[in-house]
Design a protein around this nucleic acid. Structure first.
Length: 345
DNA sequence: AACGCGGGGCG
DNA sequence: CGCCCAGCGTT
């Protein structure tokens, strides 16, 4: 029979990864260490850290006895340092609460710091021949594609469905090989960017492949829509010179030079007058969008030929000649606008 | 430059 | 419960 799990187990034999340094053991300490390192870090990066860590702290008792500074030093460069602190605290908890024997029950494993449901289940499967599902990023991707599951897999409703599905798909036997196969498939073929569906053992049943939706599944985390703001900028032109003003030190573009901003609701000609410019014609230039980390700004430039009065070049304002543009402290979008403009003036 | 990663901590 | 964070590697 060609069940989901049997296809994966068969594929794992010939195409899965078998030489990873934590695959030659059922020592829960080693498997635990590998799982924690692999939580946010890719295999290739993890391997040297894993070897060095075990060479220095070969057993759980060694880890528990080590000062936390040494553990942090062994972790240094891997990132997410809470993982190391939790690992250390977890080793001490196993010594103190379990008499030094790593707990066998998934729930007891998951009670250790830094270990959630998926990691606990993986340890139980690999080390204690349990039969419980895992759901890491690789498995989520494989399931979302193969079963055509819509929605962001981190969303609670989708996640519940994925856990349910993962449990239903578990084989009766060889669960360890099976979950390794899921992870290997997700890491080597069913990758995010360019999945190699031609080599996939699930290709003939994959909903995403059949529907041509492999690129859309799993759906990306919905990014909160950036707040939209807009502002009108005055491009006051005296010959080839443009009037710029210093931005207030706080806030956006703090301390840089920029085009004068037209306050909301203000009249362009009136405001130009307060800046020391007499203007006749007002020409709307095409608006353009600039995206910041936390909002999206639409900039609407108004081009005006200005006859300057002396106070134009006061209060942080100055006329910028085209030659001085390169060295001026301008925000990128303003520089771009002026550059575009200098061609057409 | 943006995205993804598993779990913990917070409101 | 849902939301955000951590730090690095990949795209």
């Amino acid at each position: 029979m060609n069940s989901f799990s049997s296809l994966l187990i068969r594929w794992q034999k010939t195409h899965g990864r078998h030489d990873l340094p934590w695959q030659d053991t059922t020592d829960p300490y080693r498997v635990w260490l590998s799982e924690i390192m692999l939580q946010q870090t890719q295999v290739a990066t993890v391997i040297p850290y894993y070897r060095r860590f075990l060479a220095r702290l070969p057993t759980l008792a060694d880890l528990a006895a080590a000062p936390v500074e040494e553990v942090m030093a062994l972790w240094s460069g891997l990132g997410y340092y809470a993982r190391a602190r939790n690992l250390h605290a977890g080793a001490r908890a196993v010594m103190a609460q379990h008499g030094g024997e790593f707990p066998r029950e998934p729930a007891a494993i998951a009670a250790l710091p830094g270990i959630g449901r998926s990691t606990a289940n993986a340890i139980a499967d690999f080390c204690f021949a349990a039969r419980v599902p895992i759901l890491d990023g690789n498995v989520k991707r494989v399931l979302c594609r193969c079963f055509g599951i819509e929605g962001f897999p981190g969303a609670p409703a989708v996640e519940r469905r994925l856990w349910q599905l993962a449990a239903e798909l578990l084989p009766r036997q060889r669960v360890g090989v099976y979950i390794q196969a899921q992870m290997d498939l997700g890491a080597t073929l069913c990758v995010r960017g360019q999945p190699r569906c031609g080599e996939c053992p699930l290709a003939d049943r994959c909903v995403a492949l059949r529907c041509g939706r492999s690129a859309e599944l799993p759906q990306a985390k919905p990014r909160r829509a950036l707040p939209q703001r807009e502002t009108t900028l005055l491009v006051l032109r005296n010959g080839h010179d443009i009037l710029l003003e210093a931005r207030p030190p706080q806030g956006i573009w703090g301390g840089l030079l920029s085009l004068p901003e037209l306050p909301a609701g203000a009249d362009a000609q009136m405001h130009a007058a307060t800046l020391g410019c007499r203007v006749q014609d007002v020409q709307e230039l095409p608006p353009f969008v600039h995206t910041f980390t936390h909002f999206r700004l639409t900039l609407r430039p108004l081009l005006m030929a200005a006859q300057p009065l002396p106070q134009a070049a006061e209060a942080g304002r100055r006329w910028l000649a085209p030659a001085a543009m390169k060295a001026a402290p301008l925000p990128a979008p303003i520089r771009k606008l002026l550059k575009t403009l200098s061609g057409s003036l």
